[in-house]
Design a protein around this nucleic acid. Structure first.
Length: 511
RNA sequence: GGGCCCGUAGCGCAGUGGCAGCGCACUUGACUUUUAAUCAAUGUGUCGUAGGUUCGAAUCCUACCGGGCUCACCA
């Protein structure tokens, strides 16, 4: 079906488009030229004026952008055009330009939202705004559907009040292009997101890590507790999973002789959607030989503080009105101690699952599914009573073994492994271990997981023969780390839903 | 998956049983330094979808679709 205008505004624009074509105007010319961005043009004029030079010799510029405001007055008109750098006003006067071209503006054949190219001398209007006295005016792209109208009122002190708006979340997410086009602050979030990724990369590069890329399509998934997406390779008739983590592929590279590797990329988990979960999300994982989880904690707090400094110019982040200080050193506390503080239960007093489950039921009758493993029960206690209260950055150390199949046991402790997660603003931000490098123990763990958790449960950890083969060649002791980039972005941009830090968050099908 | 809330013009919203409304945008006219431009005039609808109740439904009821918050699940 060929698209038809769906409302009056679109009908008008459709008509204008054919009127312009009848005049010989090319609606979508293949090329544009520009000498300056809008922001550069303003800077140029400011600098020119500072040298006290005559206005009649002011520089001539060509700028390109989208029309975001139009005030057609008669024989003189004003527009603001906007490119990524900002806005500049165009001053169009019939005397200064070709009358036919001017009349297209006066007759409103040129609309808000059109992309245009304008050439002229920089000037100041009587009201004092730096503008371009347009002498050449070229349509670059006709807009056939109107963007939401937002009017900007600039106050005496320079602050901008916006009138009108584009706020419907569903429409904004489905039509992110329109959201970005009209909501400047949305663009700023994604600019910061790019800085965050860049800063993480810079930090790890400077620490001597090598950036690598590993498969997204995997014949066996692993490295985390999550259900995978499945897919299929037609020619090879091969069943494949989208990765749920990078862990096992990265650690194989330590066997290969790299001392320190990292990857930034997308993981896929076939699970619930919430304000902090999206089916595909971005992680950074790194593995460093000869480091343990204490070393990784040191790196973590330095890295996060560095990123905050690079992105916001301060290690202190504001989230939901709360000041969060990301500067080292962060609080370090064991899982056992954290749970004891918030629930007064020392779970080591209840070393079997039935005992611990009974104890949890005393706190909250409905909270627990029956028949969970001891480790899952500990995790339940933690997420129920502790997690939300960890606002300032906190390392939670020493996790139950049966929920941590890739972490090394704590010597002389058959219940715990050398694992930490770190929490900021009540959210888990990342997960790390002293990595298990004993192939015999790793195989035992795979078998233990198979015994404890049913196939198709989210804790299912398929035995990866190739991974064990790699480990048998010898894997150096190492510390590993994973962190959610989306959640870090939420924290550093004060956005409270993961959807607001994803360009295209996952949504159900339209209609 | 449960609970609560929302869906009306391009956008933002009002309307809770009796003619479908407001602001901005759009259209027409005026205006040679405006800036939320102003002034005047005229338009703009599958009231999310389907069914039901009723003389009459945007409004009440049911189901469904989409969304938000929240709980559960889940890192």
């Amino acid at each position: 079906m060929v698209w038809q205008p769906t409302n009056v505004v679109e009908q008008d624009r459709w008509q204008k488009a054919s009127d312009l074509e009848a005049q010989g105007v090319i609606l979508y010319p293949p090329r544009a030229t520009r000498t300056n961005t809008c922001a550069q043009a303003i800077t140029l004029m400011t600098a020119y004026e500072e040298h006290g030079q005559a206005p009649e010799n002011a520089p001539v510029v060509t700028v390109c952008g989208r029309i975001r405001r139009a005030n057609i007055k008669g024989k003189v008109s004003f527009m603001h055009i906007e490119d990524e750098s900002g806005r500049i006003q165009l001053f169009l006067r019939v005397n200064d330009m070709d009358e036919t071209v001017y009349n297209r503006v006066k007759d409103k054949l040129i609309d808000m939202d059109d992309f245009v190219q304008a050439t002229g001398q920089l000037m100041r209007t009587q009201a004092g705004e730096i503008s371009i006295r347009v002498r050449e005016f070229v349509l670059l792209a006709k807009s056939l559907s109107p963007l939401p109208v937002i009017k900007q009122e600039v106050q005496e002190d320079g602050t901008v009040i916006e009138h009108g708006g584009f706020t419907d979340k569903e429409t904004r997410y489905r039509q992110r292009y329109a959201d970005l086009a009209v909501n400047r602050d949305v663009r700023d979030v994604f600019i910061k997101r790019a800085k965050i990724v860049k800063s993480v990369r810079n930090f790890l590069d400077d620490e001597g890590f090598l950036e690598v890329e590993t498969p997204i399509l995997q014949p066996i998934y692993g490295g985390a507790a999550a259900r995978p997406f499945t897919t299929h390779h037609n020619q090879l008739d091969q069943m494949l999973y989208l990765r749920i983590s990078f862990e096992l592929y990265l650690k194989r590279l330590l066997v290969g002789g790299f001392d320190a590797v990292y990857e930034i990329g997308r993981d896929f988990r076939n699970e619930g959607v919430s304000f902090k979960h999206n089916p595909e999300f971005t992680q950074v994982e790194f593995y460093k030989a000869y480091a343990d989880y204490h070393d990784v904690m040191d790196i973590t707090e330095r890295m996060v503080a560095y990123v905050a400094e690079q992105v916001n110019g301060s290690p202190v982040a504001t989230f939901k009105g709360e000041q969060i200080n990301l500067a080292p050193a962060w609080k370090r506390i064991t899982m056992r101690e954290a749970i004891r503080q918030f629930t007064e239960i020392d779970y080591m007093d209840y070393p079997t699952a039935p005992e611990l489950e009974a104890q949890i039921r005393k706190l909250d009758e409905k909270g627990v599914k029956p028949g969970q493993t001891w480790g899952k029960l500990v995790e339940h206690l933690f997420s129920e009573y502790v997690e939300k209260r960890l606002i300032q950055p906190t390392f939670i150390m020493d996790y139950p073994r049966d929920i941590s199949p890739f972490a090394k046991r704590i010597e002389g402790d058959d219940k715990h492994v050398e694992r930490f997660e770190f929490y900021i603003a009540g959210m888990e931000m990342g997960n790390a271990f002293t990595e298990l490098n004993d192939p015999r123990d790793q195989e035992a763990r795979f078998l233990e997981m198979a015994e404890l958790y049913a196939k198709d449960s989210d804790e299912e950890t398929p035995l990866d023969e190739d991974y064990l083969r790699a480990m048998r060649f010898g894997m150096p002791p190492n510390g590993g780390f994973g962190m959610g980039i989306d959640r870090l972005t939420m924290l550093l941009t004060d956005q409270h839903s993961i959807r607001d830090v994803l360009m295209y968050p996952h949504l159900k099908d339209e209609k």
